[in-house]
Amino acid sequence: MVERDAGTTEGKAGITRRRFTLGVLVASLLGAAGSVLTLLKVLSPEKQGGGYVTTIRPGDRLVYARGGETGVTVRASSMKVGDAVLVYPSSKASNPANLVQLIRLKETDLKPPTNIGLTDQGFVAYSAICTHLGCTVSWVENQKSPDASYTECFCHNSIFDPARGAKVMGGPAPIPLAQIGVKVTGEGALIFTSDFTGPIGPQV
């Protein structure tokens, strides 16, 4: 009997049991959705010390990034025309955004859009992080004609022209690798002289 009454006293009370229950349900669903959103926010932290933010500063010395000489200062005299190596700024190897490809070309081969002012004695340097999906680029050396060597990312075969500002010659990479200034010091070592000229890493 009591239940029936509740249904029929609508006019007087102004609210039925069904509407009340529905209201409570909607309110709790909204609350639940709100807390789930908060949880998702907690689960997707903004920064975890990753990402591609370079910490290279002008004046940093270039050291080998791999191989038996990892960490050793790169000597200008150890690289002939057509050579390329992966380098880090010294003691900043823990940041993958600092990985740079140092290439030695014939000075006269360097053409715009390469920033010639950022090169020295044919040494030119680009970010080594592919602008497609972030693999490290490699040097495809042409022994017979060194000026036909080029930079390629082996992940999806993006090809960059090191003599022309790392312009994309083929493949899915959307933009060139950013250039960074280098210079040979009096002692024959190499140092960085600028920031990257453009964005580094995948453009997403």
Partner: peptide
């Protein structure tokens, strides 16, 4: 769990 690569 944040950006990759990270320890998370």
């Amino acid at each position: 769990a944040g950006e990759f690569p990270s320890e998370a």
